[in-house]
Each structure stands twice: as structure tokens, then as C-alpha cells.
Design a protein around this nucleic acid. Sequence first.
DNA 1: ACCTGAACACCGTTCAAGT
DNA 2: ACCTGAACACCGTTCAAGT
Lengths: 184, 184
Amino acid sequence: MTESTRRRPRADALRNRERLLAEADAVFREQGTGASLEGVARRAGVAIGTLYGHFPTRTALVAALLEARNRELFEHGDRLAADPDPARALADWIRAVVRHAAAYQGLAAELAARSDELQDSCHRMTGIGDLLTDRARAAGALRGDTTGADLFTLMNAAAWAREHDTPAQADRLLDLALAGMIAR
Amino acid sequence: MTESTRRRPRADALRNRERLLAEADAVFREQGTGASLEGVARRAGVAIGTLYGHFPTRTALVAALLEARNRELFEHGDRLAADPDPARALADWIRAVVRHAAAYQGLAAELAARSDELQDSCHRMTGIGDLLTDRARAAGALRGDTTGADLFTLMNAAAWAREHDTPAQADRLLDLALAGMIAR
DNA sequence: ACCTGAACACCGTTCAAGT
DNA sequence: ACCTGAACACCGTTCAAGT
């Protein structure tokens, strides 16, 4: 690997990338992850080919958007792993991920699809889920044999419900599942 | 309303309608409710305009497909309303609806959208859900204040999970929520 | 190295003409 | 009364030409 292949990106390319991410975030919040990419490019002031140059697929764009937000989320998860109340930590984690996954309409489906571009995020999430459920189980706060995979399913389903129902209804779904999961 | 406006449909029109429904069912089972309508028409041996003549929107086609299946489902619900074990009846109903709503990929989203074409079905479902939860509550088999609307949210979310996860994972989600709903 | 935007491809929907 | 299918519209994606 010669030095030249590792050159820093051109300044205009970096700036275009940033503007594309900022506009994609705004557009996806308004219209969901299925929004027109042509519109994103136009709002960012670049041609559609530039968007494809930076992000070859829609999912790649979504993955790039999630990266910054994910870091924050995972840090929160790591902090929760040291929480003195494992049951509360688990519930807290679930609610945090659901809010996270309901940022854009369609994001829950994107996550549930487990595409290559997003599988790092998915693994990270189930990993933290496994850790938190293990701790809760060890503390006798869990009934049943809930795993990180169960959490992942629940969180995606609740995020999807949040997109299609009212947030209040989605919260009731979460409360129901939590009541079934956590020992009284 | 003169007699002529109530004439029975032409025989070929009726036959085309039946063929379109049969092929749409097959195609939606294979490819989901988002499948190409052009393909449905081609498989039914009619032009695309004929499909639109019978079913002006995709949702209208889905609604027509559901009609026959719904009748069966609602009869099951009515029978369950007389079940001696209200908790078991409730769990039975939920599982039946989820299987029903996971017939085609995308059907859960279609139901959750509560379009005009499908709102009769949705009302009927929440109605039966209200009845079954009321009976379970009266029998002391329920904890919390679960309603038919909660059931509707849960059933759609579980059906959606069934589309994106394995059926086994979706069942675990259902079990979790049921455990939270039904008094031990 | 990156950007542009015309060109291509695909599919949903309509509607004038036909039977 | 119903069917046909060409025509239109829309949008995602690619790539040759330009800087």
C-alpha cells in the first residue's frame, strides 16, 4: 500500500460528502429512508452522480448516517452494562434503541434486513443486548431465557410500530413485552 | 335504481376478476404485496388496463383478496368469544391473526396504514380483540388495562417481525408480550 | 480525483380506440 | 360493458465527457 493510495480526500469531495449527509438526514426525517435521492442531491447542491459516487447504495447512505448516532448509542449501552440495577438498565437500553431506530420512517425495516452495510451495527446491538440480559438474569431479574436476539426482534418491531401507530401505542407494546420479560 | 344498473356482470368480466384474484394471491405469496401488477395481469392472461378496471388501487386488490380469508378468521374469533378459557382464547386469537397477517410480505404494513379500503377489517379485528380482552379481564386472567387497540398493534408488529425475522423469533416476541399480558 | 447531467431502464397508471 | 395496449410520467442508476 503506497502512500499515494492513502491520500486525504480532496477538499470539495469532503465538503460534498458532508452536505449530502446533512441533507439526507433532513430529508429522511421528513420523508423516510425511501425518499427520492434526486431530491437529496438537489438540496445538497450536487448532481445525482456525485451522490452515487459517495454512496453506491441507499443502504450505504443510511449506514453512514447511522455511524455518528450509533457511537453515542453504544456508549450509552456500555455505561448501562455497569448500572447497579440490571432490570432498569435493560429497560432503559430497549427504549433508547427504539427511539434511535424510529428516527427515519423505514429505518426499522432497513435494520431488520441485516444488510452487509449495517451488520456491524446489528452485531454490536445484539452483543450489548446479550450482555445486559445475562447480567439481569444473573441478578434474578429475568424470567425465561430471553437473549440479545429476542431484544433485537422486539426493538425493531417496536420501532416499526412507532412509525405506523402512535408513539403511545408503541410504548404500550414495549411495556407489555417488558412486563413479560422482567421478573416481578 | 333501475333494474338495468343492477345487471349481473358479464361472464368474461367475472372470469377475469377471478383469475386476477387467483394470480394476485400466488404472486403476493411469492413476492409480497409490492409485486409488479404488470406481472399479475400477464399471469392472469389479461392486459394491465383490465386489472386497473377491476381494482383501481393496489390496496383495493389486497382488500378483495382478504375478504374471503377474513370471513373465516372472524368466524374463528366469534367462536373464541364463547370459549370457556378466556386467557387461552385470547392467546389463540392473537396467534391466528398473526398467521393471517403474515400471509403476504407487506400485508402488516398495509393493515397498519388503516386505509379506507381496509378499515372495515381493522375495526372488526379491534372489536373482537376488545371483546376477548374484556372477557379475559372479567375472569381475572388479565393484568393491566390491555385493549383491542393494544392487540392490534401487537399483532401487526408480530406479523411484521414474522416477515423480517424467522417465524420462531416472531413467536418468541408473541410469547413475551403474552406473558406480560396474562396474569399468572 | 472528482463532478456533471444526459441517457437508459424500469414500472406504475391512464385513456382513446376497439369489440 | 368491458378489454386492449400504446403512451405518458416518474424515478433510480450508469457512464462518457469535462474540470
